[in-house]
Simulated scan of single mutants.
Amino acid sequence: MPHKRTTRIAAVAATLTLGVALTACTGNTPQNTGGGTNQGGARVANDEPGKKVVIGFSAPAADHGWMAAITNAAKAEAGKYSDVELKVVEGTNDVNLQISQVETFINDKVDAIVLLPFDGAALTPVALKAMKAGITVINVDREFDSPFAARSTVLGDNYGMGVSAGTYVCDRLKGKSDAVVAEIAGIDSLPLTQDRSKGFADALSGCGLKVANRVAAEFTVESGERAAANLLQAARKIDAIWNHDDDQGVGVAAAIKNSGRGEFFMVGGAGSANVMREIKADNGPHKATVIYPSTQGADGIRLARLAVQGKALGDLVEVEVPREVQLFAPVVTKDNVDRYLPTAFES
């Protein structure tokens, strides 16, 4: 779940200024069949059928919208390729069961395993075992403890989420030095939550603001409603709220509605379809959300296929797929919401 922060605030802010939403693996899209060129000048035909690739896929239980979207996107992506056979096991939050699932993939001699571990550290030994058995492992979202446990890793950007949210808040509150900014975090003990909060605080400091009121929830609807109710009771005036997670945001929205408050605007987190629809309609407190891509599982499927077939990313000169792909955390507003709605998840 948590992963190391690999971006600095200056670099993220520069990317935000460009307004370019970077995504992984775009060189494999159908309209780009044939891809780019490798170092020898040969065409890279990413989407042309090749050697059959059997991929095992395992992820935690789909107990909220984002996680359900991860698995659904992976299945849909695999279905686009006639040379991919996907074996999906039931999602589980039982570490021992997930280890057993990977062991079964190893015994079945699959070509690749795309694994979003419930606990990256706990799944590291079995991922190492798979790699030693010659199976290509693609690690998704929650990093293993060893760089040798995966051929490639696909990550979101938790720190970048905070920077994106804070930069948007700064832009909206420009010149309002006494603005009251509130934050509804996720689980405080998790490094991913800590990274998001750090990025948010760093971005706010750049415009002379800071978080005045902060509460933590647990990434659930119930905890979001409870945390938001506590926040609204404690703070009589708020100008802006950043909520880390749109799934818990369903409860946050309920608490706001019950309070009758409406003097502030909200920025969501993760990028759910229901929040994006509210942004598009412009009829609620949400004016933006920051994406934590639920396409990571699908990107893992593409990388696994390319790695096993010895292909590269069509938009890169390198002849191998990268060791790590970190996805961007763009801000979705009314101006660009139509671009992101098609890949949004339902909370």
Rank of each mutant, 00 (worst) to 15 (best):
Lys237Gln: 09
Thr193Cys: 10
Ala165Gly: 04
Gly160His: 03
Asp178Gln: 14
Thr220Arg: 07
Val215Leu: 13
Phe200Thr: 05
Gly206Asn: 10
Ile184Trp: 02
Val163Met: 04
Val181Met: 11
Ala203Leu: 11
Ala203Trp: 09
Ala217Gly: 12
Lys237Met: 01
Ala235Phe: 03
Thr193Tyr: 00
Leu155His: 02
Ala185His: 03
Arg226Ala: 07
Gly199Asn: 07
Lys198Arg: 15
Ser223Asn: 01
Val180Ala: 13
Arg196Ala: 05
Phe219Glu: 09
Leu232Arg: 02
Asn213Pro: 01
Lys198Leu: 13
Thr153Ala: 11
Gly199Met: 10
Arg214Gln: 15
Leu190Gly: 00
Gly162Ile: 00
Asp195Tyr: 14
Arg226Glu: 07
Asn230Ser: 11
Lys174Asn: 11
Ala229Met: 07
Ser205Ala: 15
Lys198Glu: 09
Ile241Thr: 00
Arg151Phe: 13
Gly166Phe: 02
Met161Asn: 01
Ala216Gly: 11
Ala228Met: 15
Ala165Asn: 00
Ala234Lys: 04
Gly156Asp: 06
Val181Ser: 12
Gly186Glu: 06
Arg172Phe: 05
Lys176Ala: 08
Lys237Val: 05
Ser189Trp: 07
Ile241Lys: 01
Ala165Tyr: 05
Tyr159Ala: 04
Ala217Tyr: 04
Gln233Thr: 12
Gly206Pro: 04
Ala212Lys: 14
Leu232Ala: 01
Lys174Ser: 12
Gly160Phe: 01
Val169Met: 07
Ala229Arg: 15
Gly160Lys: 00
Asp202Thr: 08
Arg226Ser: 12
